[in-house]
Nucleic acid binder design. Sequence first.
DNA 1: ATGAAAGCGCTAACAA
DNA 2: TTGTTAGCGCTTTCAT
Lengths: 347, 347
Amino acid sequence: MSTDAHPSRLPARPVGRVTITDVARAAGVSVATVSKVVNGRYGVATATAQRVLEVIADLGYETSLVASSLRRGRTDVVGILLAGFDPFATELLKGISAEAVGKGYELLAYSGAISDDNAVGWERRSLSRLGGTLIDGAIILTPTVSLAGTSVPVISVDPHTGSGGSHVVDSDNVEGARAATRHLIELGHRRIAHIRGRTDLESAHRREQGYRLSLAEAGIPFDPDLVRDGGYRAAWTTEPARELLTMPDRPTAVFAANDLSAFGVIEVAHELGMRVPHDLSVVGFDDIPEAASASPRLTTIAQPLQAMGARAVTMLFALLDGQEAETHVRLPARLVVRKSTSPPPVL
Amino acid sequence: MSTDAHPSRLPARPVGRVTITDVARAAGVSVATVSKVVNGRYGVATATAQRVLEVIADLGYETSLVASSLRRGRTDVVGILLAGFDPFATELLKGISAEAVGKGYELLAYSGAISDDNAVGWERRSLSRLGGTLIDGAIILTPTVSLAGTSVPVISVDPHTGSGGSHVVDSDNVEGARAATRHLIELGHRRIAHIRGRTDLESAHRREQGYRLSLAEAGIPFDPDLVRDGGYRAAWTTEPARELLTMPDRPTAVFAANDLSAFGVIEVAHELGMRVPHDLSVVGFDDIPEAASASPRLTTIAQPLQAMGARAVTMLFALLDGQEAETHVRLPARLVVRKSTSPPPVL
DNA sequence: ATGAAAGCGCTAACAA
DNA sequence: TTGTTAGCGCTTTCAT
């Protein structure tokens, strides 16, 4: 009801959400008036505003993001669309979050239900479901399809399609892969295998390209038999790694397209009784936090994930602000030498 | 795209979100029919459904989460409410995400705009803004206020208030802190300082309690001068750490209430020309991924963050499913000895 | 200064 | 089998 006997205590609020109607009723005004007070519009008597504010505090009312976003254009919320909260995504999130703090936007990281039938195109779906209503703009992590003609500004981080019409942040995959392979070559390896990433991703191609480039530079002939698909996942790497490590004249080193598949390779190597790096050198890519604590600690290529996230928000905010933003930002990737690489065994 | 001067994009552009009305018009049916098709309701002629489906595919229509959630009760989306995407939160997210996959729910991690005036009570605000409309239930990370009487099921992870009426997942902070302090004592330290966590958080009290307990067990008198507030943040730790390390008869070891403040302590120690662990031993708490790669690698208490996240979702799904769920799940924390602790220097 | 009413995109009764 | 209608909670004209 409108009067509570114990104003200092939490009042008996209506069951469920407190709506603007509840507030209006309790304050004895119309919902329009409450809305004006909440949004600081002019045309409300000070006394009325005062009373409404009290009721709001009393009832613990907060305007519903959903309802207001449906009515308003803006929400001051930016979405980060991702396929799941994996180490790659969470590192990016850290950078995004740190950069976004205090800029007046709220962050909403959204992971649609991933199942087999929406495994591809999740980003379009998520964007359609949220864009234009819930979020003012979006940062999409590793989109696999083109994002042309979206209803809100979009920044793609490490996208499959080159630029795909949207603004892009990525790191220099070719150079990174080249550095990784060169490191192995400089250690003395000649038979260097490569576990590919998801072949539908641009980054996977670029990493393979860097691998080949480095081989060519060292005059090592490319052997297609030493290249397998690992899909950027530890589990999918198991089989190809086993094939690679049990073949005659097996490779002495593996450049895996990302850290997760590098872990997969190391696991298989251990299963087969090999020691890393003594019997097999392994280089990853990404430098997720787990890479530093793995056993052995993983030599890998560090993508500046947090910096990439930070750049992405900066660009998005600029866009939302009606300003220009760079179309493509490419940050350098660098080799981090740890304990999973060493000179090849003397066979 | 030439008129950026006008921020108002009110006019209905032909290019923008595709709504159910667009689909209905294009298919020559009513919006109700489209809705039925989209939601697989009975009572639509096969031919009509076919045509509508085609138009939907053509236009790339997806139902708006916002609009449908406003109308429907359920959204099949669970919210993870957090103050920011810090290492603690992202580890939990990994566990949550891994456990939630394939369960038919979508995940929405929400970080409200953090500013000074809403620094406290953000969780209530976020919950009010999203609950009852956008999300079916919520997992709240480190809530600092009581969450009684919410409109949706809530699981609190590592909350300030004991149980606060809601379901809780946390780790054994007392035992963890006790193990940390005991480790230092066993190494031979006697003057062991403690950097407190945020004193408004339950976990901070429990960690101090474990510290005192361990001291008492070893017969070491408690010295209030050796306890300072660090607020769980590296920056806030700088001053108290400096005081501690420059005092006469300085401590030879510090048990910091979390890894972030342990880093703060180490930084100050380095500034003062001390080597860790040679001149000063430091133990943290949490075992965020950064702890393993820090220099020196940090001895700390590992909270099973991912497992905690996984348990939280499991409990929430049970609740949403109308089942019972444990009221309080407490997971064990364990000591991880790395390189930031050693016997005290011989003074 | 205030409130009535329209409508954002959608779903669910109910009619036709 | 279809369309009409009435809201979900909110903001925003436009009257009063």
